[in-house]
Computed example of a mutant assay.
Amino acid sequence: MRAHTSTVEPLDDAAALAGQIRAVVGKLTRRLRGKAPPGGLSWSQARVLGRLEREGPTTLTALAREENMRSQSMGAIVGPLAEAGLIVGAPDPSDGRQTLLSVTAKGRDKVLANRRIREDWLAERMRATLTAEERAALTRALALMDIIADD
């Protein structure tokens, strides 16, 4: 295992630590995005497909709200997903005027394959660059970040 260095400095100041966490998470996100292209989808379409796979069926309006966009803009994103057979709409059982969008088996396969590529790359990077002790420290830090991320 090769020696490695980090630009992250130990910090006691919460504001400075928050800035560094944001920067590192952003850098990691960009690296992960580069490892698994969305397979003919825009990044917005890939993000919406992933959200439906993770969180389950929802309405176009709710998706738009969660993604901070107008319903019309979300419609332009989900339309091609439906045409490609990656999502499907069905009447909402509690309100027949609404349509619930959900991921299809084909859509789930696409999301899972994309996720597998990214997770395999990340696991390999961790094995190649971190000691077992460092991976254990990362596990502890991840638990703390999960606490922070909870509402």
Score class of each variant (00 low, 15 high):
Met1Ser: 14
Met1Gln: 12
Met1His: 15
Arg2Pro: 15
Arg2Ile: 09
Ala3Arg: 15
Ala3Ser: 13
His4Arg: 13
Ser6Pro: 13
Val8Gly: 08
Val8Gln: 11
Val8Phe: 10
Glu9Tyr: 08
Pro10Asn: 03
Leu11Cys: 09
Asp12Asn: 08
Ala14Thr: 12
Ala16Cys: 05
Ala16Phe: 07
Leu17Cys: 12
Leu17Val: 10
Leu17Trp: 12
Leu17Arg: 12
Ala18Ser: 13
Gln20Tyr: 03
Ile21Arg: 13
Arg22Tyr: 09
Ala23Gly: 07
Val24Ala: 15
Val25Glu: 09
Val25Ala: 15
Gly26Cys: 03
Lys27Gly: 10
Arg30Met: 11
Leu32Glu: 07
Arg33Lys: 10
Gly34Asp: 13
Ala36Lys: 07
Ala36Met: 06
Pro37Phe: 00
Pro38Ile: 00
Gly39Ile: 07
Gly39His: 02
Gly40Asn: 03
Gly40Phe: 03
Gly40Cys: 05
Leu41Gly: 10
Ser42Glu: 11
Ser44Thr: 07
Ser44Asp: 15
Gln45Arg: 02
Ala46Asn: 06
Arg47Met: 08
Gly50Val: 04
Leu52Ser: 02
Leu52Pro: 05
Glu53Lys: 01
Arg54His: 05
Glu55Phe: 04
Gly56Trp: 10
Pro57Glu: 00
Leu60Thr: 14
Ala62Gly: 04
Leu63Asn: 08
Ala64Gly: 08
Arg65Leu: 11
Glu67Lys: 07
Asn68Asp: 14
Asn68His: 13
Met69Ile: 13
Gln72Arg: 13
Gln72Tyr: 08
Gln72Ala: 12
Ser73Tyr: 08
Met74Thr: 06
Met74Asn: 06
Gly75Ala: 05
Ala76Pro: 01
Val78Glu: 04
Pro80Thr: 01
Leu81Lys: 02
Leu81Cys: 02
Glu83Gln: 13
Ala84Gly: 05
Gly85Ile: 03
Gly85Trp: 03
Leu86His: 03
Leu86Pro: 05
Leu86Ile: 00
Leu86Glu: 01
Leu86Arg: 01
Ala90Thr: 14
Ala90Ser: 14
Pro91Trp: 08
Asp92Val: 09
Asp92Pro: 13
Asp92Gln: 06
Pro93Thr: 02
Asp95Trp: 05
Gly96Ala: 14
Gly96Tyr: 05
Gly96Ser: 12
Thr99Met: 10
Leu101Gly: 07
Leu101Tyr: 15
Val103Gln: 04
Val103Asp: 04
Thr104Leu: 03
Ala105Ser: 10
Ala105Lys: 08
Gly107Pro: 06
Arg108Ala: 06
Lys110Cys: 01
Lys110Ala: 11
Val111Phe: 02
Leu112Ile: 00
Leu112Gln: 05
Ala113Trp: 00
Ala113Phe: 00
Ala113Ser: 03
Ala113Asp: 01
Asn114Arg: 11
Arg115Val: 01
Arg116Asp: 01
Arg116Cys: 00
Ile117Met: 10
Arg118Lys: 15
Glu119Thr: 13
Asp120Val: 10
Met126Gln: 12
Met126Thr: 06
Arg127Pro: 02
Thr129Ala: 07
Leu130His: 14
Leu130Ile: 03
Thr131Gln: 09
Thr131Leu: 03
Ala132Asn: 02
Glu133Ala: 15
Glu134Thr: 07
Arg135Gly: 07
Arg135Thr: 09
Ala137Trp: 15
Leu138Val: 13
Leu138Asn: 12
Leu138Gly: 15
Met145Ala: 14
Met145Ser: 08
Met145Phe: 14
Ile147Arg: 11
Ile147Ala: 11
Ile148His: 10
Ile148Ala: 14
Ala149Ser: 15
Asp150Leu: 07
Asp151Val: 10
Asp151Thr: 11
Asp151Lys: 09
